[in-house]
Computed example of a mutant assay.
Amino acid sequence: MSCGDPHDTECGEVLDHLYEFLDNEMNEGDCVKLRVHFEECSPCLEKYGLEQAIKALIKRSCGCDDTPADLRGKVLARIDSIRSAQRRAEPVGVTEPLVATEASAAE
């Protein structure tokens, strides 16, 4: 996505890192770049606001449910795998489903 206007940080780069920004997983320098972009770019600011609202709704709706430890471990391992592959610029494939099946739930 691009709004068509020139920016120091491209819209695509901002949107690629939007969840890291929302989850406070970025260093302060990168956060500043995104904040500046949001001040200049209303389409990206709108997308940020929408994602922020969705995140708040999910937290409010699902915040009291405990995540099974094995599912949490699989999700975190998958995130690490994807991030490692991105650093190496390798394609990432799904190797194992993250959703617990009835057989694994019974264990």
Rank of each mutant, 00 (worst) to 15 (best):
Leu98Cys: 07
Glu90Asp: 14
Gly63Ile: 00
Asn24Val: 03
Gln86Leu: 05
Asp8Ile: 04
Phe21Asp: 02
Leu98Pro: 03
Thr9Gln: 10
Asp30Asn: 08
Arg35Glu: 15
Leu76Arg: 13
Phe38Ser: 01
Val36Leu: 14
Glu90Pro: 01
His37Thr: 00
Cys64Ser: 15
Asp16Glu: 10
Ser2Asp: 10
Leu22Arg: 09
Gln86Lys: 13
Lys59Ala: 03
Leu34Met: 12
Val94Gln: 11
Pro6Asn: 15
Lys55Cys: 00
Glu102Ser: 15
Arg83Val: 01
Asp23Ile: 05
Phe38Glu: 01
Gln52His: 10
Asp16Thr: 03
Thr95Trp: 14
Ser2Pro: 03
Leu57Trp: 05
Glu39Gly: 03
Gly4Met: 09
Asp5Glu: 14
Lys74Trp: 01
Asn27Gln: 08
Arg35Lys: 12
Asn27Cys: 05
Met26Tyr: 08
Glu10Cys: 06
Ser42Phe: 14
Ser81Arg: 14
Val14Ile: 14
Asn24Asp: 13
Gly29His: 12
Leu18Asn: 06
Leu15Lys: 13
Ile54Asn: 05
Gln52Thr: 05
Glu90Lys: 14
Glu10Asn: 11
Gly49His: 08
Leu22Cys: 03
Glu28His: 11
Glu40Gly: 04
Asp70Trp: 07
Ala100His: 04
Glu40Leu: 09
Asp16Leu: 01
Ala106Leu: 12
Tyr48Cys: 01
Tyr48His: 04
Gln52Leu: 10
Leu50Cys: 05
Glu10Gln: 13
Arg35Cys: 02
Pro6Ala: 06
Ser104Leu: 10
Ala56Lys: 15
Cys11Trp: 12
Cys62Tyr: 11
Leu57Glu: 07
Leu76Phe: 09
Gly63Asn: 04
Cys62Asn: 12
Asp80His: 13
